[in-house]
Amino acid sequence: MSSRELILGRVRAALADVADDEPASWIYDRDADEHSRYARAGSRDPEALAALFADRCGEYRATVTRAERAGLGPAIAAACARHGASSLVVPTDLPEAWRAPGVEWREDHPSLDVHALSGFDGALTGCAVAIALTGTIVLDAGEAQGRRALTLLPDLHICVIGEEQIVEGVPEAFERLAPAARSGRPLTFISGPSATSDIELKRVEGVHGPRRLEIVIAG
């Protein structure tokens, strides 16, 4: 018997007490009651969401700035200047308006090797959705985001977020991300710069991932 058959057989034997027609999973819309009905949607308006998101990211020591869509170029240039970054790697479908003058741009096409990626001062991308309550941005390899290594190897990540991309809580984000997950795209949740709590359970920012995170909210 194969290991597969053996394990599945053991599982079935172990579950002899379970009725065959029992529902196989717990589904919120069908099964939630007063004990388990957690909040699935928030009630804050867009302005409050942006403020909350900025506040929460700030606590992770990410830098958050806000800009009009028309003024994104200068805002990004300012972010680069803050970190002394003069070369940025970007996904090929990055909007033209984000490419600030005075910075060296390089598209990740054809795919750069890891050493080359590591050599850039920073990476600039958009994102798929942002979660206000937790100060999280989520990348889903969609528009203006590129592949995963892009935002991992350079030491600075500048991420542009449209105000309309900010949701209040985790469940709303999952609702928006489901299509990407179903089509097999990788997702990366980022909450502040890389950190560790491994020494005496105290948080220290900056280990292997980008040590600096700049977020620009476009409204």
């Binding site: 100060g135 995963r148 290594a149 990788p186 990366t188 949740f189 980022i190 909450s191 502040g192 948080r203």
Partner: peptide, 21 residues
């Protein structure tokens, strides 16, 4: 676990993605 609202990185992947990973 770490008493954070969210840990810095959560990665989700599905099988293999062409040109990525």
């Amino acid at each position: 676990s770490t008493a954070e609202r969210m840990n810095p990185y959560t990665s989700l992947w599905t099988g293999v993605t062409p040109e990525d990973g």
